[in-house]
């Protein structure tokens, strides 16, 4: 029931997204107006697809990270993975600007992976009785890395570039400039194959060993998937914080942590919420746009608070 409603909502939002924007585009115009079709094909279509992929994969990455760290208050964009990706792409831009884009992506992902592993090592030394410490350390760690990025960018006179990576928004998405995101979509779908493994890792090392799971291997696969998705998102549309934090919490509160059943819900919810935020961002100050991250921050917080304070249903 929830699934059907969610998918219908997402479909509805997707159609809406195609026809909302600065340039007028009405569904009927598609039948006779060549320019309308062009607009759909080169701008609105890619933008809608980019939002859906970003929202879905960021939400899934958030879930995987929360399982690996065993803490509900972390997400890749604030705990160092996003900043690592930005640092990686900055280094490539400064030192190897002529490298092919896929190689640049690879390096950004590698740096993001390295900063995530360091985060995990730091977190493993924290006392397990203090869950809030993990998210605090994550924010501090992300902040320090972010400061490094800013400093290097300032030194290299690349502050404008940095802005694109650090503040996510979708107005720049055009055909030919977002296709890397399809790789993120593929990685997101592939990581669903390991849903049971991530769920078991989320129950801890002891349970994993008892069930014959190679704990370290699953953690590495998870971090790799998070790093790739994050790096692709940061480079293509920029950092969008909060999605990986709010959406997994909403879904696990409503439907639990059996990831084989809930990861698709997480992906669709993430896509729908980010898409709704993007559409709102386009119309609230029409014809100007509000960055999707700001809108999502407000929207996600409202949904989450409502969930926290709504009477708890006992399943």
């Amino acid at each position: 029931m929830i699934r059907v409603t969610l998918i219908l909502t997402l479909a509805l939002l997707a159609v809406l997204s195609l026809f909302v924007g600065v340039a007028d585009l009405s569904p009927s115009a598609l039948f006779y107006d060549r320019a309308a079709l062009d607009l759909l094909w080169t701008s609105r279509g890619p933008r809608t697809v980019a939002v859906i992929i970003t929202g879905g994969t960021l939400a899934v990455s958030g879930t995987i990270m929360q399982m690996i760290v065993r803490n509900r208050f972390v997400e890749p964009m604030t705990a160092g993975t996003g900043q690592g990706a930005a640092l990686g792409i900055l280094l490539v831009t400064v030192f190897m600007p002529s490298m092919p884009i896929l190689m640049k992506m690879g390096i950004a992902s590698a740096v993001a992976l390295a900063t995530s592993v360091i985060f995990l090592v730091i977190v493993n030394r924290l006392p397990p009785t203090q869950p809030m410490l993990v998210s605090l350390v994550g924010m501090i760690y992300g902040g320090i890395l972010g400061a490094c990025v800013l400093f290097f960018a300032y030194q290299a006179d690349l502050l404008q570039y940095i802005d694109i990576w650090m503040n996510g928004e979708f107005s720049g998405v055009l055909q030919g400039r977002y296709e890397l995101l399809w790789i993120a979509a593929a990685v997101g779908i592939l990581s669903y194959l390991a849903a049971d493994q991530f769920a078991i890792v989320g129950m801890g090392r002891t349970v994993s060993t008892n069930l014959g799971l190679n704990y370290t291997q699953v953690v590495i696969i998870g971090l790799l998937s998070i790093a790739i998705v994050t790096a692709l998102t940061v480079v293509t549309v920029g950092m969008i914080p909060f999605v990986g934090l709010v959406v997994p919490n909403i879904v696990s509160r409503l439907s639990g942590d059996n990831l084989r059943a809930t990861l698709p819900l997480t992906a669709v919810s993430g896509a729908a919420l980010v898409l709704a935020s993007d559409i709102l961002g386009r119309v609230l100050r029409y014809p100007y746009e509000i960055p999707v991250g700001s809108v999502f921050g407000v929207l996600g917080a409202v949904v989450f608070l409502w969930l926290l304070y709504a009477p708890r249903r006992h399943v």
């Binding site: 049971d196 129950m203 349970v207 069930l211 509160r253 639990g256 942590d257 059996n258």
Partner: peptide, 15 residues
């Protein structure tokens, strides 16, 4: 963990 009893018992079959 946020699992139902059936889901938890189900993970016992993972091996």
């Amino acid at each position: 963990p946020l699992l139902t009893v059936r889901e938890l018992v189900g993970f016992g079959r993972y091996p």
